[in-house]
Amino acid sequence: MEIAFYLAALVAIVATFRVITHTNAVHALLYLIISLMAVAVVFYSLGAPFAAALEVIVYAGAIMVLFVFVVMMLNLGSQTAHQERSWLAPRIWVGPSIMAALLLVVLVFSFWHGGGIGTISGEELSAKEVGTQMFGPYLLAVELAAMLLLAALIAASHIGRNDEPQLERDMNESVQRAPAGNDEGGQA
């Protein structure tokens, strides 16, 4: 299980690096999907199959689809790739990278000496245990998250609202060529 953990972690880091450095937005998103799946394998190797499955279903399977959807609609051409490339000039990223690297050194050092590293037992945590924890000690957090999501849902459906009556809209559609993706996007 330790080999699986380190391999998946390596894939996650390399893929995330390519997300930042890639100039084509859709290809960068593909790397981000791979990165999320690698994180799912990391969860799995740590003995949390439920979290791994949710990571793929929610992040890779739903949220990233919307990202790809939007980028696809924007129809970015070679101009954007050029712009991306100009943003990747060394004078922009060298400073922050050195500082981030320093923080990484501190983190690795403290792990090395603080004894924070446990071994990976590969013991599995079942979905039932996760549920018991969620609706036991962490009930308040779950309820708060639920309320936040409900508020977001209401806001989204309000923004995506169509005031025109159905019949009138159907008749106008052929004249105006209203984008078909509009109302579905709001409801989704």
């Binding site: 859709v26 793929v56 399977g61 689809v65 790809v68 959807f69 599995e124």
Partner: peptide, 25 residues
């Protein structure tokens, strides 16, 4: 014989969307 059984199918169905999405793009 996975503990997460059904969830694995959901995950794969989620990945399947990309075939259509990338194919179209």
């Amino acid at each position: 014989d996975l503990n997460i059984g059904i969830l694995f199918f959901f995950a794969m169905a989620g990945i399947n969307v990309y075939a259509v999405l990338f194919g179209g793009y």
